[in-house]
Amino acid sequence: MARLTMREAISQALWEEMERDPDVFILGEEVGVWGGTYAVTKGFYDHFGAERVRDTPISEAAIVGAAIGAALTGLRPVAELMTINFAFVAMDHIVNEAAKLHYMFGGQMVLPLVIRTTSGGGRQLAATHSQTPDAIFAHFPGLKVVAPGTPADAKGLLKASIRSNDPVLFIEHATLYQTRGEVPEGDYIVPIGKSAIQRAGRDVTIITYSKMLEISMKAADQLAREGIETEIVDLRTLRPLDMEPVFDSIKKTNRAVIVEEGWKSYGVGAEVSARIYEQIFDYIDAPIRRVAQKEVPLPYNRTLEQMALPQVEDVIAAVKEVM
């Protein structure tokens, strides 16, 4: 296995899928000549050409709308939205069209569509460019929402997303692109809708995903030195949400902490904890704790921004509260 960065893993998945299937094409802002704002599609334009690596105007509704239309004709578009913050401009096409057409027309319309985008704060881009609103998108039946936390999962899940006949919002974290990990070569597929244990432990369960997996892993390392063994469940897909590994883990540890980067109110932690309480209440020995972003728009100032984002220490403190 090769050690790749997240960027390389995503790029590899895209490249291999485009080589495999001529119906797969990319459209978005700066995906072609520029090589991708995050350099994920660097080299694609020269290799695959302008027809399959389509630069668009700054026109998010048209990017997603055109991707939907092309998908309806049987193509497999991978639309890139530079950041999830710009997805709000295309919100109607994501939630009112992509998530609805298959159902609303009685199954006759099929949308094999992927929308790739980046989420997350921590780069001093201030309030409008730093959000982690992943949970909003997971609210809508009809849409699948995938958010990998490791390079291997990113490769495997992106391949699965491109091959899926349902619309998938594929959320990459903007500060994970340089993160390295072992990535299987070739046709490596990770199924959508499967959570995974990323670290085994007996004392407490942390449920997390995306960038917060990294934070949680660091917290777990420190906790281990203090004799607390943490089991970490990576959701990987927010919709459909796979709770079985979460339940199995909690049945063993009887304690749970949920770590997400987005705001706590109405968030991933709210959903996951509600399901735990609803379905395995008897296994919980301490109130569930949620670690999340402070309820403020993210500020530009580095110190303030870091205060607002969940840190390793916050996770450690939450784990100790449930012990």
């Binding site: 094409f25 055109a66 239309g69 092309a70 004709t73 193509l75 096409h93 009112n96």
Partner: peptide, 16 residues
């Protein structure tokens, strides 16, 4: 909202 979708329908035909 269906206008951008029409762009994609036409793109699908051109692509093929």
């Amino acid at each position: 909202a269906h206008l951008p979708i029409a762009v994609g329908l036409a793109l699908g035909d051109v692509y093929k």
